[in-house]
């Protein structure tokens, strides 16, 4: 029972952080049709920025509670700066090129940003445990959990609700959905598509950064963490269906729970299981579980 609860909570926590990151990835894909490999960099930069400043502020003797402000601020700054620069300097000039080529360009960017992180922050790991220590832990059903980790589930739920509200209850959502369904149609409706693209990319980047910034206090922030997350969130959006928020949510839960199960019960297949699920879903549902509809061709 206790193991079961541990697996469940581990899995959900893991799913939550995957969802936050993947939601950004899937929104960018849905609107811009770009599979953004450097999404992993947003995550890594979010993590490093927040870990760095949480550590700095704590050294300066500022209250630990400030850490939460730092987390949100890091996500927004990373998303705004990196997202804006990358979209304006690189991607904007590529929209007319092959989908695959854009993926390769974002892969190139990802590699560059990985090394820039090393130059900026060095190779030593960062520990920014303060916000987590502040929230303490609770006992539930015989096991002890960090409250901080549990709040992650709440943050993911907030993100999901926010996306749902934005897409379904605002004028912005209508515009986005039009562009998602058919870009040409969006243009003919008078939508300023380039502007929508820029905002979408920044929005997605902020979500990527938030995933990293929020998870930073619970891990050792060290080189290579962007790689793991990009691989996992690819699996999530493929399983869920690229471009679907609902899909990202379901995909996150599936991948998160399966991985937690593997880690606890069958460590040999930990790495294997994510890819196996991805392969199986691709084979039987090539478009993923919840792929949005497409316009007809000829």
């Amino acid at each position: 029972m206790e193991t079961f609860l541990t697996i469940l909570l581990d899995g959900l926590q893991f799913s939550s952080y995957l969802f936050i990151v993947s939601a950004g990835l899937t929104i960018i894909f849905g609107v811009m049709k770009i599979l953004n490999v450097c999404h992993g960099s947003f995550y890594a930069w979010g993590a490093y920025t927040s870990a760095f400043f949480i550590g700095k502020f704590s050294e300066m003797g500022l209250p630990d509670g400030l850490g939460f402000v730092v987390i949100v601020a890091s996500a927004i700054i990373v998303g705004l700066v990196l997202g804006f620069l990358i979209e304006q300097l690189i991607l904007k000039h590529m929209y007319h090129r092959d989908e695959v080529l854009i993926v390769l360009a974002t892969f190139g960017l990802f590699l560059v940003l990985e090394d820039v992180i090393l130059i900026a922050f060095g190779t030593d790991p960062y520990f920014a445990y303060q916000p987590m220590a502040l929230l303490d832990s609770v006992e539930m059903g015989g096991i002890v959990r960090d409250v901080y980790g549990l709040t992650l589930i709440g943050v993911a739920a907030l993100v999901a609700a926010g996306c749902w509200f934005l897409l379904n209850k605002t004028k912005w959502g209508t515009i986005l959905k039009a562009v998602i369904f058919d870009r040409e149609m969006g243009i003919s409706m008078g939508i300023n598509v380039p502007f929508v693209y820029t905002l979408t990319f920044i929005g997605g980047a902020i979500l990527g950064g938030l995933g990293g910034a929020y998870i930073a206090p619970t891990i050792s922030v060290a080189p290579g963490l962007g790689t793991e997350v990009i691989v996992l969130s690819f699996a999530v959006v493929v399983v869920g269906g690229m471009g679907s928020i609902m899909g990202a949510a379901i995909g996150s839960v599936i991948i998160g729970l399966l991985r937690a199960l593997a880690v606890h019960e069958l460590p040999q297949v930990e790495l294997f299981v994510v890819f196996a699920v991805m392969a199986v879903v691709l084979v039987f549902r090539p478009e993923g579980l919840f792929a949005p509809a497409k316009p007809r061709k000829i």
Partner: peptide, 12 residues
């Protein structure tokens, strides 16, 4: 330490 940067830069 700059291998990824070189590869990525060449890519772009």
């Amino acid at each position: 330490h700059l291998w990824q940067l070189i590869v990525g830069g060449t890519f772009l």
